[in-house]
Design a binder for these strands. Structure first.
Length: 270
DNA sequence: CAGGTCTCCTGCTAGC
DNA sequence: TGCTAGCAGGAGACCT
């Protein structure tokens, strides 16, 4: 599941080939991927626009075009593949962008990914980007900020860290890793955290995400494709989907918190 | 308003 | 072996 580091990696890979390229046409095989505007408007508007830059906000990819911005969220399993123009359509390929010499295909097994085509103005004041919280590397992210945001939050810190309106970019895998590194029990109420605990969370969030970006993201499910755009296969996870704590060697606990699979060491994380 | 639950979707797996 | 029920999860909709 792509989180900030994976999206960052995909962004860099896409930039290498797409900057300055004109979108000649787009085929929409599975319409539900397109959230806004209508399918027809999406096609009509995007046609002929040149990709001038590709950036990232949280887990969203932003394709900056002549007039509009194409927003793409990969959700669980979304991927982009470069293909030859005459390659046959494969299963799970839902959106095909046609360029002069190649095609870019959006592939998504579970069809959870979403795309929006908004004007530059709409991006500023409309969902889905409006209301997102701070980027993890934003200098404004400090203990005071979290203290204020979580003052009245009676939900587990695990759940609070997944709230994209506070910090954006963290998903289920990295939140498990961040809380393990911070030695904080994921069930602790967000409002109960002390300054030193908030400080640890901020420190390890930056450290873990930075390291993951450096490695090209984490890929949990292995898959192969020479043409796929994804991070190198890396496994530097210490707690997520593990059974024995690498620090104290006690049994790692797995339970659902806020409906999400949570791994933690009850001995190390208090 | 805050917090909980449901929904989307498919591939994989445990269990019989 | 073959079948099926159950599970996984990001974020928005919907409910309490």
């Amino acid at each position: 599941m792509p989180e900030l580091p994976e999206v960052e990696t995909v962004k860099e890979t896409l930039k290498k080939r797409l900057l300055g390229q004109k979108i000649l046409d787009v085929d929409i095989i599975y319409p539900n991927i397109i959230e806004y505007p209508s399918i027809k408007q999406f096609q009509d508007k995007i046609k002929g626009q040149v990709i001038h830059n590709i950036s990232r906000r949280g887990k969203w990819l932003l394709f900056e075009l002549d007039n509009d911005i194409l927003l793409s969220h990969l959700r669980m399993e979304g991927r982009y593949y470069f293909k030859d123009k005459n390659d046959l359509l494969e299963k799970h390929e839902h959106i095909i962008f046609h360029f002069h010499d190649f095609d870019l295909r959006y592939v998504d097994t579970r069809k959870f990914g979403r795309m929006h085509l908004l004007t530059k103005e709409e991006v500023q004041n409309k969902k889905p980007l409006y209301g997102l919280g701070l980027e993890p590397f934003d200098s404004e992210l400090n203990e005071d900020y979290l203290k204020t945001k979580w003052r009245k939050k009676e939900i587990p810190i695990k759940t609070a860290l997944l709230d994209q309106t506070v910090i954006t970019g963290i998903g289920n895998i990295y939140v498990n890793e961040i809380l393990f590194a911070s030695k904080i029990n994921p069930l602790k109420k967000a409002s109960s955290l002390k300054r030193d605990e908030l400080e640890k969370i901020i420190f390890h969030t930056k450290k873990i995400l930075k390291e993951a970006i450096k490695q090209g993201g984490t890929t949990i499910k292995s898959y192969e494709s020479s043409k796929g755009v994804h991070g190198r296969f890396q496994r530097q996870l210490l707690i997520h989907e593990k059974t024995i704590c690498p620090i104290c060697h006690e049994k790692i606990k797995k339970e659902k918190i806020g409906g999400r699979g949570t791994y933690y060491c009850p001995n190390c994380q208090r």
